[in-house]
């Protein structure tokens, strides 16, 4: 460790200290040493949580809904950012969802997309769905359609903000050169603009993905009871009427933390291999 690293390292550790202590506590609680119902060192909670089929089904379901939502949000955000970067009205519209808190967005999704929601009422008025049950189940449904859309709606705004910022820093000279040399607009986009845009926004995309894994309020209002989304599983276990099972909540929490950390680390490694990227 060189001397110039001492001050920065101290600063970083100071800021991260609550989380470090927090993770330490979570590990102790997962091992039965802390928290309600704690008694002695045991791997019972770890075995019960990691051996449970519902845990892994929840992991898979949460990863899948978060991934689809992030993909939808990113695709929409890139498309929109490329088209509205010169339009102040468009930029303002696109970032509006940032102002709406997650609970509020989930409530809106419930009011819009449930089988008796606003969209269903419109299709009813059009004579397409005589009763609520004729409208497809988009809320509390096993594919998490409303959850994915609500996730995507929130993350879309954040990704547009990032994408517009990245597009603003791009060097347009190479576009001109390429066009002069006879490249088509499509070629210019895929060969020049896209790689730069992706490089600039990939940390934000990964951050959105990882964030959605732990988002609680939206699944609490929109997700089905089975499979049980990861944050709901953590909450459910943490208030289990059987105190002896509450330790499992910490195991699932650690699993969620590991997933997030793993995603970020994997992305960091992938990014280091990109030419010309310093961070």
């Amino acid at each position: 460790m060189t001397r110039r690293n001492v001050a920065p390292l101290a600063a970083v550790l100071l800021i991260a200290s609550p989380v470090i202590v927090g993770v330490a506590y979570t590990i102790l609680a997962a091992l039965g040493l802390r928290g309600a119902g704690a008694s002695e060192l045991t791997v019972r909670h770890v075995a019960a949580a990691l051996g449970g089929w519902d845990t892994w089904r929840g992991v898979g379901w949460t990863l899948a809904t978060a991934a689809v939502a992030t993909a939808v949000a990113a695709a929409a955000a890139f498309t929109v950012a490329l088209r509205v970067q010169q339009s102040p009205l468009g930029r303002l519209l696109a970032v509006l969802p940032l102002a709406v808190p997650h609970v509020a967005a989930a409530l809106a999704a419930l009011l819009l997309l449930s089988q008796s929601g606003w969209v269903s009422r419109l299709t009813h008025a059009a004579g397409l769905t005589p009763t609520p049950a004729d409208f497809p189940a988009l809320v509390y449904d096993r594919f998490g359609v409303s959850l994915v859309l609500a996730f995507a709606w929130k993350e879309f705004a954040y990704l547009v903000l990032t994408a517009v910022a990245v597009l603003g820093t791009l060097d347009r000279a190479s576009d001109e050169v390429a066009r002069t040399l006879g490249a088509s607009a499509r070629q210019v986009f895929w060969r020049i603009t896209w790689p730069q845009l992706w490089r600039g926004t990939s940390p934000a995309v990964i951050a959105a993905f990882a964030f959605l894994i732990g988002q609680y309020e939206m699944p609490a209002l929109l997700a089905p009871s089975t499979p049980t989304a990861l944050p709901l599983l953590i909450y459910e276990r943490s208030v289990d009427p059987n105190l002896l099972r509450r330790g499992e909540a910490y195991v699932v929490a650690l699993l969620a933390l590991t997933l997030c950390a793993g995603l970020i680390a994997a992305h960091g490694i992938w990014r280091r291999r990109l030419p010309g990227v310093t961070r």
Partner: peptide, 22 residues
């Protein structure tokens, strides 16, 4: 409802479904 494949999370959700005729 939904053939028992899913259950409303809480009683507030039940009231919402009931009030809207689901």
């Amino acid at each position: 409802w939904r053939e028992g494949t899913t259950y409303p999370p809480d009683v507030a959700a039940m009231h919402r479904l009931f009030a809207n005729g689901e």
